[in-house]
Amino acid sequence: MTPPVFAHGHLRLYLLSLLDERPQHGYELIQSLGDRFGGTYVPSAGTIYPRLAKLQEEGLVTKESDGRRTVYAITDAGRAELASRQDELAEIETDVTDSVRRLADEVRSSVNDAMRSLKADLASAAREARTDTSHGIRSAEAIPEAAQDRDARAASRAAMHEAEAALASFRADLRSELRTQFAAGTLGTDGPELLVRRLDEVRREVTAALRAR
């Protein structure tokens, strides 16, 4: 757990030291503290204003309205408090210096961690990109084969439809011829026998030709 920047009661005394330099409003005090800590520590308004109110209650500071702002100033009682606690104030300044170093180290460590995390993320993204590219290449290589398979299946389906259409047309033509001869009374007994014999010959010839491909 990160130790507090100010020990108990030290922020109150440090605010008196800042007001001893010049009167300031609350936001200026927050900025002054941020400047002293190099931006590594900036107290919230909820931290500063209750302490200023307590200092006012104790008669160590006063406040006056300056337009929309409230300006705080140290009183003689506040200066006497500072004078009686100079040794403690010196210790606070040393603690502030140590706190600035500690916070700077934490920020530096956080930045380093963030940089390492960023590098890891970039490396991971690069690996994923290479993997995607590799998959893309393999997929691209597979596309012509897949396209050829699709084309072959499409050609086979077309050929099958054409063959079925040819068979249907052949059957229809033969049926029409047989019916015509039957209607004319010219269909002898040798006609069907001839048809069966020749169809069987055609079947064997076509089957042999297809299997020989």
Rank of each mutant, 00 (worst) to 15 (best):
T2A: 11
P3M: 00
F6V: 04
A7F: 15
G9T: 01
H10Y: 14
L13T: 06
L15E: 07
L16T: 04
D20I: 04
H25W: 07
E28W: 00
I30T: 01
Q31T: 08
G34E: 05
G39R: 00
Y41I: 03
T47E: 14
P50T: 10
L60H: 07
L60S: 06
T62M: 10
E64Y: 05
E64D: 13
R69I: 05
A73W: 03
G78K: 01
A83S: 12
R85E: 14
R85F: 11
L89D: 07
D98L: 15
S99T: 06
V100Q: 06
R101K: 13
R102L: 07
V107I: 13
S110F: 05
V111H: 02
V111C: 00
N112L: 15
N112M: 14
N112A: 15
M115N: 03
R116S: 03
K119S: 09
D121L: 01
D121C: 00
D121I: 00
S124T: 07
S124G: 13
E128A: 07
A129Q: 06
R130L: 14
R130G: 07
T133P: 04
S134P: 03
G136I: 12
G136F: 14
I137K: 14
R138L: 11
S139W: 08
E141S: 07
A142T: 10
P144L: 04
Q148N: 13
D151A: 15
R153E: 05
A154V: 14
A154S: 15
A154H: 15
A163I: 05
A163C: 01
A163K: 01
A165F: 08
A168M: 11
S169A: 13
S169C: 02
A172I: 05
D173K: 00
R179E: 15
R179L: 15
T180K: 02
A183L: 13
A183Y: 09
G188L: 02
T189F: 04
E193G: 08
E193K: 11
L194D: 14
V196P: 00
R197T: 15
V202D: 08
R204G: 02
R211E: 09
